[in-house]
Computed example of a mutant assay.
Amino acid sequence: MPPGWPRGVRPPGVEGWQESAVAWLYDLVPPGYRRHEVLKRHPALLARLARQHVEAALQAARHGYGTARVDLRDRVDAHVIDAVMRVYEYEGSRTAALEREVGLVEQALAGKRWTPRL
């Protein structure tokens, strides 16, 4: 698998891989998405929505990071702002990695296969 392939998702071509991918994707989107039959019938669409959801979360983390010091300076102490900045850094990094994972699963659902490099 390519670097960044998500844990818990079986490799494409292995029995049950698509089911493991769908279960993983459903864990990334709001719970209400499970009630839409079109997403059950078309996992590639679920992957698209999951990617968009993760992209929005990453954008929100970046925006929050960029505005937190100004927005919070009159509301909390500096050490609290520093702590929330660390949260944004951690979650931003985690979400950026998740964005890559979702992209790889989306590509695999679209039929892309990777070959090992020597």
Rank of each mutant, 00 (worst) to 15 (best):
R69P: 02
D74F: 13
D71T: 05
K112V: 14
G8M: 06
A61F: 12
G111M: 07
T95I: 09
R34S: 08
G16H: 07
D71I: 01
G103E: 08
P116M: 11
E15F: 11
P3T: 09
P30E: 02
G92R: 00
V76N: 05
G13Q: 05
V9C: 12
T67G: 07
R75F: 12
G111A: 13
V70D: 14
R86T: 12
P3D: 14
M1Y: 06
A78I: 14
A57S: 14
S93H: 11
H63D: 12
E91N: 09
G4D: 11
S93F: 04
A47F: 03
A78N: 10
H79I: 08
A78G: 08
K40G: 08
K40V: 08
A83G: 12
Q59H: 12
Q52T: 09
K40T: 11
G103F: 01
A21V: 02
R51D: 10
I81A: 05
Y33L: 05
L58Q: 10
K112T: 11
P3W: 06
E89I: 13
G4K: 08
Y88N: 10
H63A: 14
A57Y: 03
L109H: 03
R10W: 10
G66Q: 11
R117D: 12
L28E: 01
A44T: 08
L98F: 04
E106L: 07
V38Q: 06
A78H: 10
K40W: 10
R7A: 14
G32W: 04
V9S: 10
E37I: 06
R69K: 14
V80G: 03
H79A: 11
P31E: 08
W114E: 09
W17K: 04
L39K: 00
P6E: 00
A61S: 03
E106N: 00
A60G: 03
A96G: 05
H36G: 00
A97S: 05
H42A: 05
A68K: 02
L118V: 11
R35Q: 06
D71Q: 11
W114M: 07
E91T: 13
H36D: 10
P116L: 14
E55Q: 11
L104Y: 02
V84P: 09
Q52W: 12
G66V: 13
P12L: 08
R100S: 05
G4E: 13
L39R: 01
T67V: 13
H36F: 15
V102A: 01
